[in-house]
């Protein structure tokens, strides 16, 4: 069952640490994630999970060690290059960060702002037109009926799916999800994780882009922070454990020994 991932490297961390003032949030992390991997990050609150995700989307820089995202080191990038890199990384957080006062379509299209550039983005805000890709993204999350709904009128679960549609339309090569299911019931949680898995899988019809032609694109990678090892086992291929800023295990989910989890959540 154990198979070594063979895709290209998506992120590589070598001896990465990050401190805020004198407090280390993350220390000595070595981690390589390849295409096609779905990685669950487990660990108690304050273990450094959010810091790790912020490093991976380039909004935070490491205090030490070397970090490489999609083939480039964010530290040496100009603002423009950094934006270009961030465009290939999709982030979804627990707070969803949707603009509540606009139509669902706008929030979905927000995932394409970087691709569109300024003039087209402004035009789309003034004259919103649901095109094929936006409708596909909403259909994938089961919200095709809500294109013109006001976002704030939707339920919590529906808003979560709008945020995922925004992610889908961005077509990221790396998806980072910060506790996406923390406030959901088990059935919903499973649905959301399945959708996130779909977001990084290519050629499932979802990504069939009439403009792109028959170019086979490789799968992306998913990194998701979770509190439920069971969900990790169902939806991920690999699990890593963080505790007090250190990587304490890194294993294929099926090989995850229960003892490792006990150790992870044990009180210091």
């Amino acid at each position: 069952m154990t198979q070594t991932p063979s895709g290209e490297v998506v992120v590589r961390l070598q001896g990465v640490g990050r401190r805020f003032g004198a407090t280390p949030a993350l220390a000595g992390v070595d981690l390589t994630i390849r295409q096609g991997e779905r990685v669950a990050v487990l660990g108690p609150s304050g273990a450094g999970k959010s810091t790790l995700l912020a490093l991976l989307n380039g909004s935070l820089e490491p205090s030490e060690g070397s970090l490489e995202i999609l083939g480039s080191a964010p530290a040496g990038l100009s603002t423009r290059e950094r934006r270009a890199l961030q465009r290939r990384v999709g982030t979804i957080s627990q707070g969803l960060d949707l603009v509540e006062q606009v139509r669902v379509l706008h929030n979905v299209n927000a995932g394409r702002l970087a691709e569109w550039g300024t003039p087209r983005a402004l035009a789309s805000l003034a004259w919103p037109r649901p095109d094929r890709r936006a409708l596909d993204a909403l259909t994938a999350v089961g919200l095709e009926w809500a294109v013109h709904e006001r976002t704030e009128r939707l339920s919590g679960g529906e808003r979560q799916r709008v945020a995922i549609a925004r992610l889908l339309i961005q077509r990221p090569e790396l998806v980072l999800a910060d506790e996406p299911v923390a406030s959901l019931d088990p059935t919903r949680a499973s649905e959301v994780l399945a959708l996130l898995g779909q977001a990084v899988r290519r050629g499932t019809g979802l990504d069939a882009d009439p403009d792109a032609g028959p170019v086979a694109r490789p799968d992306g990678a998913l990194v998701v922070t979770l509190h439920q090892p069971l969900l990790a086992r169902q939806h991920c291929t690999r699990a890593i454990g963080l505790r007090e800023g250190r990587l304490i295990f890194d294993a294929v989910v099926d090989d995850l020994p229960p003892a490792a989890l006990d150790d992870l959540y044990a009180r210091a």
Binding site: R83, L85, T91, L113, A114, T118, A121, L125
Partner: peptide, 13 residues
């Protein structure tokens, strides 16, 4: 963080 340029991001959000 998703790489959106400044002006549309401000207008959208």
């Amino acid at each position: 963080d998703a790489g959106a340029p400044a002006v549309p991001a401000v207008v959208f959000a």
